[in-house]
Design a protein around this nucleic acid. Structure first.
Lengths: 374, 374
DNA sequence: TAGAGCCTGGACAACGTTGTCAGATGCGGG
DNA sequence: CCCGCATCTGACAACGTTGTCCAGGCTCTA
């Protein structure tokens, strides 16, 4: 958390105190003072001001602003002029309060800086835009508490809907919100302990196919490097790995699997260990894009040729020598599907929670087709 | 724009009409009906409900919710129980209306799916979080109208501040907003026709250094492929290219410069033309990350060895053969700097608009050090 | 035990908008 | 000439919260 010693404390719950006198500074008073002193904050014209200037009633201004019928052209012109002159802009906060809908949805994901989430977020945004809604983004940094904090903050803002890429595994805290009408769709990983819509990639099937691909090219000693198994996708991919191995009747050595590996250094160490261990692997299956990138680095420094299939596509994968074979998932499709489902909920279609699984696609580029070198 | 034939029309300005009777459907009535029928929408408990259940006054609930002093432990407990039982959550819309600050800032950028903007957005989010504010994102898709639409929508929501990566070149429409107190910082490109804070990378200096680097390695026929010169960064990089060439006393052929090139196909064509033209180039300077990626592809298919320096770092650039030499800018630093400046404005520090330029860094990896092959 | 002062709690207005409803205006026809 | 009707306009309440301010009960001291 960055330091924030500032006077901008929108959510501050303490009562500010004057340094010299020790008196409580009453915020309202402060705000009034701002207004009177011509401070730049606040002090925006309201419909009332526009009405006064145009010499019409409040509601007439509202009608003009909202394009409602029943205003003579002449009156409308006068109102428009007043709006122009004062630089009036409707206060949507007040509008929201009155109407009950905020026309905004929230998206909670792991890390907006991850190239996997950018396209996903953009896809959600496009769908929201098509429905006249804005998008509020938040990164949970894979921290369940932060996820909950974010989600509840969004609920307090009364977002109409939530798209959540869960970090935690217990979402019962969302029950009252969902009951109260907040549309909710989970993406990439299912919700924990509640029944809700979820859109995910076929991690199990994708991983299984990827590993089977390596087996088909003659590999039997195949390593798996993945994230913490408490993350659903990581667990599913591991399950896919195991299933493919079992399908082929290959017993798996413990030293071939590295789980809960995050951060480039740990991935590097894990890869080096399974490449030089007592029973060295001839191929590696990488559980996500970050792992893939690091493994590519390690293999580039490695003398022996080692096959690689990664989960998630990465940019420029086709230009490496050899090209990196991957099990690709479509991040944008995940986001789009989830958002569309969200707005279907908001349309009031009484739909029972569903699990939507999108297929993955094996893209062969060379690294996965290398023969075992042992 | 996606199709949106839905009943969720938060911004709808038309008056809905009953299909059968032709009567106007009065939204308020509809909403009341929803409530009465136990519809899941709306119908959330308010402080009043909590107060009634706890047998206390409205303001007492407010005090408990906001952690204000002056409530006996026993009363507080009763209120907490009522909150728990009803699943109450404070309505921040109403709070915002009363307090005048929304504790949210807006970020308008070109495309969240672009790997350059992900880290930038994340950095802005972190700073916002440190100040207790949420972040609303919007993509302008490089369309000035859409930028304006987004910005004004955010202003109507009364965001406390705006970070804008401009698509247009005239931001006078923001003048009333800024006067009204919306803190504003532009990033990556300066604002048009208004005086405002701006944080940018040293595009001119970076490009000049990058091209000088190629010249230092013996190149004289150097191509430039960049975006539309109406985009400030593109123009600056072109200027840097020209400056470096002029510094070295090298006259520039028109056929070496491709401007306003967007989309992989056009970049590809531009690159092929300058490689096979009457005076073929021996090196290429790529004006942004998307151009770089495509040029790398073209060069990979090309027999003759051609040097390349790109503006913006790209992932895996070090793993290509040869590694891609780039002029790197720090997207996260841009975002962080801009956001910090924004909150400094909100703190009320009377600061005059400033232009902050962040340095770029030349990262040599091989492609920029190839000798001319002619 | 009375009075001063503190602590707790609650009634009320206000934030800026929209929905309701009734009043004003103008027009045409009887 | 007046009535009815349609059209246009505006007063008012409500949305859910917070700031202000006062009342009532308590403690403490003289």
């Amino acid at each position: 958390m960055l330091d924030a010693t500032s006077s901008y404390n929108p959510m501050d719950r303490r009562i500010p105190v004057d340094d010299r006198t020790g008196q409580r500074i009453v915020p309202e008073t402060a705000r009034r003072a701002d207004r009177l002193s011509g401070n730049r904050y606040g002090n925006r014209p309201t419909m009332k001001d526009v009405a006064a200037r145009a010499g019409v009633g409040l509601k007439t201004v509202s009608r003009v602003v909202n394009g409602e019928p029943g205003v003579t052209p002449d009156t409308e012109r006068r109102v428009q002029e007043a709006i122009e002159a004062l630089g009036f802009r409707r206060n949507d906060s007040a509008r929201v309060l009155r109407k009950g809908r905020t026309a905004s949805i929230g998206l909670v994901l792991e890390d907006l800086a991850d190239p996997f989430y950018g396209p996903l977020s953009r896809a959600v945004e496009e769908v929201a835009r098509a429905h006249g809604a804005l998008l509020i983004n938040g990164s949970s940094a894979e921290d369940p508490d932060r996820e909950q904090e974010l989600v509840l903050a969004l609920c307090a803002r009364r977002v109409d809907g939530l798209v959540v890429i869960p970090a935690g595994d217990d979402h019962r805290y969302l029950e009252p919100e969902i009951r109260a009408g907040v549309a909710t769709v989970f993406v990439d990983r299912p919700a924990g302990k509640i029944d809700a819509d979820v859109v995910l990639s076929d991690s199990f099937g994708g991983a299984r196919a990827g590993v089977a691909h390596l087996i088909a090219h003659g590999h039997r000693r195949i390593g798996f490097i993945g994230d913490m198994p408490r993350i659903h996708t990581a667990a599913e991919r591991l399950r896919g790995y195991r299933a493919a191995m079992e399908d082929a009747g290959i017993p798996v050595e413990d030293s071939w699997m590295s789980l809960g590996v995050t951060g480039p250094e740990r991935v590097r160490r894990a890869a080096e260990e399974m490449l030089s261990g007592p029973v060295p692997v001839t191929a590696v299956f990488a559980g996500n894009n970050r792992v893939t990138v690091t493994v590519v680095r390690v293999l580039a420094e490695h003398s022996r040729s080692v096959a690689l299939v990664g989960f998630d596509d990465i940019e420029l994968a086709d230009l490496l020598k050899p090209g990196v074979t991957v099990v690709a998932q479509d991040a944008a499709a995940l986001g789009r599907t989830a958002a569309e489902r969200l707005f279907r909920q908001l349309d009031g279609a009484l739909i029972t929670p569903e699990r939507i699984e999108l297929p993955t696609r094996l893209i062969t580029r060379g690294s996965g087709e290398l023969p075992p070198a042992d």
